[in-house]
Design a protein around this nucleic acid. Structure first.
Lengths: 236, 236
DNA sequence: TCAAAAGTGTTTTTTTTACACCCATGC
DNA sequence: GCATGGGTGTAAAAAAAACACTTTTGA
């Protein structure tokens, strides 16, 4: 044991969470204002040190609640990548971060300042390039991953509450990719593929605005499961 | 510094490498026979401890050479996922492994036993379920990743030498997915998409066997870059 | 009744698939 | 010549895209 300890270098391990939500104008990300050194006062991704007997994913959920007050129950969460370049953390010893990607419906999540961090939602473009540590790189990696996952998996529905209309789902893709999608074709495609969403046979109440009330759908596939055919390609 | 050290738990960090090659009968993986405890005598993925100031990818390449004699120059290598469940390594303290996915052309790589490990190529199905530590889980994760990457990226060409024929490339997909692909359609598709391969305007010499000599191609895209359209779908 | 959003039908265009056929080489 | 794999042509089938049109609601 003493031999084990002396022979190999030791590392500190953290988890960071890139939590995305979809606003009307595009992708939003949850950031906290750091209350301590290093990078005090600067925006960063929520995260913190892993406990001695803790799974990474558990650590990510715990830190999310502690730092932002956002409940991690039912939150879609996946390991993104591990960032461990020497010197990425200015403190002594190497601090390695297992970054996680998460998605929420945003509506039922009102961030509050935690013990040592004030949390807020921000547009991704607004904070990109301004974050502490190497969190700009982590955020960029997460954006790439999201864009590709949207195309090939059922992840898009995770930006919405458990039940949603096809218009809302279409809005997610339109906001994410900055293009407009034909409502009719989108409707047909989603109703045809059986491995993404399923209708509830109930309509939204009260009707959200003008127009015919839309039917409610539920996600049927695992958020990260690959779909039989890419749901949406380009300018449908 | 003393405060820093005493406050947070410490971890040991390793890298493991899942190196794949494509044999005639399907996917092959490089394994080593462990010479030390724990799991002495059992097959495992090549890997080892990260040095104090070493990048993960450098560590992966170093361990690959040290344990198997396979040169990692020009080898396609990507982080797969980090495995850190408490107890995954029976030794004291937590040992966390940053697993890497790698692909080689196999032909120019003759493994030899290293200092404390005897390396050999094995069919994935042969070793699946028999590996040390949680390497079965790592291998399974790597197989899933490979299957999905083959479909959406230019990774397939990484199983071949720098210059190759379209028949060889077709063989990679046929072996990986266990189906036959129409040679004519494959030819057209690969010649049409400009973001995967490019012809050299030279033919293979000497002609490998009977039949018209095939033209040589080179990979043009980054191995892990997403292609404009999935190269192959199903039973083309 | 009108505007607006949901949802369906239909035609055009593009892509995929199947498969016939020609090409170039070794034996 | 002829077998064999490389490569092209072409037509049928399927999918995607464009867009006209009907339905159902609030105002």
């Amino acid at each position: 044991m003493a031999r084990f300890t002396s022979e190999f270098p030791v590392f500190y391990l953290t988890v960071d969470v890139v939590l995305f939500a979809m606003g009307d104008t595009g992708l939003q990300v949850l950031v906290v204002e750091r209350g301590e050194q290093p990078f005090a006062g600067q925006a960063a991704l929520p995260g913190g040190f892993v406990l001695p007997d803790e799974e990474f994913e558990d650590a990510a959920r715990r830190e999310l609640v502690e730092e932002t007050g956002i409940s991690a129950d039912g939150l879609v969460l996946q390991q993104l990548r591990t960032f461990g370049a020497p010197g990425r953390d200015p403190r002594p010893h190497r601090v390695v971060s297992v970054a996680h990607l998460a998605v929420t419906a945003h509506t039922d999540t009102c961030p509050r300042g935690g013990t040592d961090a004030a949390a807020r939602w921000a547009h991704v473009d607004e904070v990109a390039g301004t974050l502490a540590f190497d969190h700009d790189e982590i955020l960029a990696t997460a954006r790439e991953r999201i864009a590709s996952k949207l195309e090939y998996t059922a992840l898009g529905a995770s930006f919405l509450p458990p039940e949603f209309t096809l218009s809302q789902l279409r809005g997610v893709y339109e906001a994410a990719w900055g293009l407009t999608i034909d409502p009719g074709n989108f409707q047909r495609k989603l109703r045809t593929c059986t491995d993404f969403v399923t209708p509830t046979n109930r309509t939204v109440i009260p009707p959200s605005g003008r127009g015919r009330p839309a039917q409610l759908f539920r996600r049927v596939a695992d958020p990260f499961a690959l779909l039989a055919s890419p749901i949406i390609r380009s300018g449908m």
